[in-house]
């Protein structure tokens, strides 16, 4: 049937949620395997950890000992299989550089990344959606033109320059916020967070704002195009015909509909930000995992890079899954079919 791919009368959607999740997880395992082979082989080809790590006065014996201690004296396929075998047991290996378990390294830096990314996402949504709705509703008004100009500028200035600009304005000229680093942390559930104390929060603001700019621009655009599309739907006109308050029309009828694409794209963006906020983390010396990745590539710390990419892939898979589930919650048409 030529129509089977879209006509809703012809569609076949008898797959259960559990099946769906299992199938997605199955696919992701294959994805993870391919990913790990590529990263593993790529790191092997590009640089030799022993060359990078052995000192200038290292003897040949030192180099061999170092290679042995890293397991690099084995042929690559054996190294890979050993690595896989350990992963199955939950052991992601030990960093060449830090001599510590890779998972511990990643997880002790994860909270720093999470707090800045989530703050940025929250700000992005809280600012972007209202701006987008406003400009979608008032296409010809002056503030809309300002917003539109702002999002264009926000998109076109590279993240890196924005970061320096922020530092210059807020740290150097105004001296209201610190230029870099992470402030004091407060322990919650055994993990240190800096967003939960006033001094720590001052340190989070600039990196979070740096990430938030692109998010605000993106959310504004999504909300604006969503608004323009939804406002022309019959049900919006019918809702107006019912005589309901404008706040309800916007806050409920409009918002619920435009949230659907926003949730999907924000989900993807969340994954990207968590895994690859390297620029922001580097410029602000924010001790998160993006910086760890960059340092590890630079230092040829293969276990960290490989484990990192595997975890990042896993996270993308999970985020996509969660986004799909939220999508289903927001859109009853998907939930009940």
């Amino acid at each position: 049937m030529a129509e089977a791919d879209h006509g809703h009368r012809c569609g076949r959607t008898d797959e259960t949620m559990t099946n769906f999740i299992l199938r997605r997880l199955g696919q992701s395992i294959i994805l993870l395997l391919i990913m790990s082979v590529l990263v593993f082989a790529g790191m092997y080809v590009i640089s030799d950890p022993v060359a990078v790590m052995a000192g200038e006065d290292a003897t040949e014996a030192d180099r061999q000992a170092l290679a042995r201690s890293f397991g690099l004296d084995q042929p690559l396929p054996i190294q890979y299989l050993t690595f896989l075998g350990k992963i199955v047991q939950g052991d992601f290996g030990t960093s060449f550089v830090y001599g510590r378990p890779v998972l511990a390294l990643i997880f002790e830096r994860l909270p720093a990344t999470l707090e800045v990314v989530f703050l940025a996402i929250l700000v992005g949504l809280a600012v972007g959606i209202p701006l987008g709705i406003y400009s979608g509703l008032n296409r010809k008004k002056a503030p809309t033109k300002v917003i539109s100009f702002g999002t264009t500028v926000g998109y076109s200035i590279p993240n890196f320059w924005q970061a320096l600009l922020f530092i210059l304005v807020f740290a150097v000229w105004l001296r209201v916020l610190p230029a870099s680093g992470r402030g004091p942390t407060t322990e919650i559930f055994g993990v240190g967070w800096s967003v939960f104390n006033a001094e720590g929060l001052r340190y989070v603001i600039l990196p979070a704002a740096n990430l938030a700019v692109a998010l605000i621009c993106m959310q504004t655009r999504l909300a604006r195009s969503g608004t323009q599309e939804v406002m022309y739907q019959d049900y919006m006109m019918f809702a107006r015909a019912k005589g309901i308050a404008r706040s309800r029309l916007i806050g409920r009828h409009l918002l619920r509909n435009i949230l659907i694409p926003i949730v999907t794209i924000t989900g993807l963006e969340l994954g990207t930000l968590i895994a690859f906020s390297t620029v922001t983390e580097t410029v602000f010396s924010w001790p998160g995992i993006g910086k760890l990745l960059l340092d590890s590539i630079y230092r040829s710390d293969r276990p960290v890079v490989v484990a990192y990419m595997i975890l990042a892939t896993l996270m993308f898979v999970l985020i996509n899954l969660v986004a799909d589930i939220i999508y289903a919650i927001l859109d009853p048409r998907i939930r009940y079919s």
Binding site: Q233, D234, Y235, M236, F238, A239, R252, H253, R256, N257, I260, L330, D331, P332, R333
Partner: peptide, 9 residues
């Protein structure tokens, strides 16, 4: 079918 908002009960 189009007069009612698809995502609200």
């Amino acid at each position: 079918m189009t007069a009612l908002n698809p995502v609200l009960s």
